Amino acid sequence: MTTLDADRAGYRRDLRRWRNRSRRVKLARVVLPVAMVGLLATVGGQVAWRSFTAGDRRPAESRAQIRMVTPRFYGQSSDGRPFIITARSAVRDENDLKRVFLDAPTLTLGVGSPAPTRSTADRGVYREDTLKLQLYGNVRMDDGAGYRFASDEALVDTRNGNTTGETELQGEGPTGQVQSNAYSVYDKGDRIIFRGGVKTRIDRKTGETVPQDGAAPE
């Protein structure tokens, strides 16, 4: 092969490459604009759809949980006895701000008196509108005069100091020991009524056990 033939062969190869590249460039000039238009249409459609649906969606309400550490709630009963409720921590109900969940609550009724009554529990729920305290789990009550009671639940009305419970109660004091399935405490603790299994009333002033509703003392 002469030099001239080699030059012609090289020219033909270059020409073929140029023609192939030219076809690709022409194809790209057609395809790329179409692809860009399609992409812009897709993006525009998504933006329009989000704008349309956003009007129907309400922003989610963000409610920060109201948590208190070592809270204290003060008040006074109807007979003038001040009380205080303390706890390790407390959380307000998001749907009812007058309702407070307590961790390890302690109620002291008759603060400053010679013999205040104290009630403790694992958990509690205090309503600031009704001034009622519901105690749950390992409820312990001490009247400050030698009487101690244990139960699983207790409802204390701090307005009058009355305490009621519909669970088993065990108690001990100067007049002995007692056990019942339910109980009620009235008159600043001077009158205690036991119900269910043991229906008695203990007169703490005389130390005598008085039958109630015809039930024999136990």
Rank of each mutant, 00 (worst) to 15 (best):
A104E: 11
E94Q: 09
Y186I: 02
K132L: 12
P105I: 02
Q170E: 11
W18A: 14
E153Q: 14
L107H: 10
R58V: 14
Q46C: 10
V91F: 02
N160F: 01
D152K: 12
D152Y: 09
K132H: 15
N20W: 15
G165H: 04
E168N: 13
I85D: 00
V69E: 09
D7G: 09
V125G: 02
A35R: 09
G75F: 01
E61F: 08
R118M: 05
G161W: 00
G165P: 01
A215Y: 12
N95V: 12
R29P: 03
L135P: 03
K199C: 07
A6I: 11
R19C: 13
T164C: 05
L32Y: 04
R19Q: 15
R81G: 05
G38C: 13
I202T: 08
P82M: 00
L15G: 04
S62G: 08
S113Y: 11
G75Y: 02
T3P: 00
A150P: 01
F101D: 04
G165K: 04
T120K: 10
P59W: 07
R81S: 11
D122K: 15
V156D: 03
D203C: 02
G144R: 06
E208M: 13
G38N: 07
G45A: 07
T130Y: 06
F73I: 02
R148I: 06
E168M: 11
V185C: 05
A104V: 06
A145Q: 15
D7R: 15
V30C: 05
S151F: 04
P217R: 12
T3C: 02
I66N: 14
V30P: 05
L109S: 04
G55F: 04
L133W: 02
